[in-house]
Design a protein around this nucleic acid. Sequence first.
DNA 1: CCTGATACTTACCGAAAAGTGAGTACCCCA
DNA 2: TGGGGTACTCACTTTTCGGTAAGTATCAGG
Lengths: 117, 117
Amino acid sequence: MVRGTRNGPYFCGIDAAMDVISGKWKVLILWELHHHGVRRFAELRRGLPGVSEKMLTQHVRELEEDGLVRREVYPEVPPRVEYSLTDDGTSLNASLASLGLWGTERIRRTGAAKVTP
Amino acid sequence: MVRGTRNGPYFCGIDAAMDVISGKWKVLILWELHHHGVRRFAELRRGLPGVSEKMLTQHVRELEEDGLVRREVYPEVPPRVEYSLTDDGTSLNASLASLGLWGTERIRRTGAAKVTP
DNA sequence: CCTGATACTTACCGAAAAGTGAGTACCCCA
DNA sequence: TGGGGTACTCACTTTTCGGTAAGTATCAGG
C-alpha cells in the first residue's frame, strides 16, 4: 500500500496536517516567516543553515501550492522574490506553537544540543 | 550536511518535536493509544489499516526509546505485549491536539477524502 | 493434525527524499 | 575585467524509508 499522500485520503486531522508539513525544512521555513514577516529567498537560505537551494525552492513551492505561503515576484534586475505567510500559514503556525513548547521542554529535559547558527 | 537527527542538534522546539514524530505511522500510533488507553500489538495493527508488522514494531520501539510509549511484555504463551502512553507521550498528544483541529478544518475546506476504515 | 493466532525478526527491494555541483542571465562595485 | 550577489533550474548520486515475504516458537480449537 502506498500513501505518499499530498492531499489525502487521511485518517484524521493530524494526518492531514502532517502531510502538509512533512519535509525536512518546512516547519523551519514557516517558523522563519512567522518571526520575520517577509523574507527574500537568500534571507531564508541564510536563516536555515544547511539547506540547499534546491530543497529550499522545492519546499517553498510546495508550501505555496498548499496555500500556506505567499510568493511575490518583483520583475526587477537583479530578481527579487518575497515570501510571507498566508492566513492559513499563520493559523498553522499558531497550531504548531504548543508543539514547539513541548519540544523546547524536551530539549531542556534531555539536554539535547541546539544547532549553532 | 546531514541532519538525520534523532536527538539533536535542533534549531528549535518544533524541530525537536518533529524529530520524534516523523515516521509514517507515529502520530497515528499515539492517537490510537490516546483513544484506547492500552492496546496490544495486533489491536494496534488492526487500528492502522495498511501498516506492516515491520513498520509497526519499528515505530513503536522508537517511540519507546524516546520515552513516549510504555511497552509491557507478559511472559505468557501465546505472547502478550501491551502498549500505552507515558506522561511524555500524553503531553505530546495534548500538544498535537490543536494541530489536529487545524487539519480537520483543512480537510473540511479542501474537501479531501478520509481513509475508508 | 492442521490452521490460525500471538508478536515479532530478517533479508531483500523499490521508491522517494535529500544532497551535490554545475549552469543561467543580468547587475553592481572595485 | 573580475568577483559577488540575485533566484533559481537541471542532471545526477546517495541515503533513507517503507513494503513484501518468509521464518520462529508455542498453544488453542476444530
